[in-house]
Simulated scan of single mutants.
Amino acid sequence: MTDQNNDQLGVLFVCLGNICRSTMAEAVFKDIAHEKGFHNRWFVDSAGTSSYNIGCPPDERTLTVLGKFKINNYRHVARQVKPEDFQKYDFILGMDKENIKKLNSMKPKNCKAKVELFGSYDPEGGDIIEDPYYERGMDAFINVYKQCRRASIAFINKYTVV
Rank of each mutant, 00 (worst) to 15 (best):
E26S: 04
C56S: 14
I142D: 05
G55H: 10
T49A: 04
P108C: 09
K97W: 13
M138R: 06
G55A: 01
E124H: 07
E60R: 14
R79W: 02
Y133T: 03
V81F: 06
D3N: 06
N40K: 15
N110C: 09
E84G: 09
K112W: 08
N53W: 04
V144W: 03
D139P: 13
N99L: 02
L66I: 04
F29H: 04
D31I: 04
K68H: 15
Y89G: 03
I71H: 06
N73M: 10
E116Y: 15
V81G: 03
K158T: 15
Y133F: 15
E124G: 08
D31E: 13
I54R: 05
N18R: 06
V115P: 04
T49F: 01
L9S: 07
N143G: 07
I156H: 06
F155N: 00
S105M: 12
K30A: 12
I153K: 11
H34P: 01
T2Y: 05
D3W: 05
I142L: 10
M24F: 07
K109A: 14
T62K: 02
S22C: 06
I19P: 03
R79M: 12
S22Y: 01
K36I: 08
H76P: 00
N6L: 13
I129T: 00
F86S: 01
N6I: 12
G126I: 01
K158Y: 09
F43H: 01
G126C: 02
P123A: 07
D127V: 05
N104A: 11
F155P: 00
K146M: 11
G10L: 03
E130Y: 14
D131M: 09
A25S: 14
I156L: 14
F118H: 10
G10N: 01
E26F: 10
N6G: 10
S105L: 11
P108I: 10
D90E: 09
A47H: 00
R61N: 09
K88L: 08
G55D: 03
